[in-house]
Amino acid sequence: MTKPPLPADDDQVAIDATLRAVLRDVLGLSEERAATLDEMTPLFGAMPELDSMSVVNLLGELEERLGIRIEDDEVDGSMLDTFGHLLGFVRSKAQA
């Protein structure tokens, strides 16, 4: 059993870890592959696991795990094009 990552004193690190965990769970990425994602890693259009159906699952799981609400008009190509962009988006939502 793993404990959920929720260090209250370091939200940035926690959100980064949660995003990696969600990508792992939804896309079935290995632990190693999820850990090697960096700011520039291309996602939508480059990662075969991330098809349009998985995007629906990804958004739903992020909403649920982070307690955020993602509006349809916020979901565009640039938000999902790299890990860095997606992380930035999720951080801005989680802190709003």
Binding site: M1, P4, T18, D25, V26, N57, G60, E61, E64, R65
Partner: peptide, 29 residues
């Protein structure tokens, strides 16, 4: 993994996977 609950279990939610993989440990828990 997260949220308000009486108990949290660390596991991949099968309902978020297009092709879920069997998780015997989750079922047993």
């Amino acid at each position: 993994n997260a949220g308000e609950a009486d108990r949290l279990i660390g596991a991949s939610p099968p309902w978020r996977r297009s092709e879920p993989v069997r998780d015997a440990a989750l079922a047993a828990a």
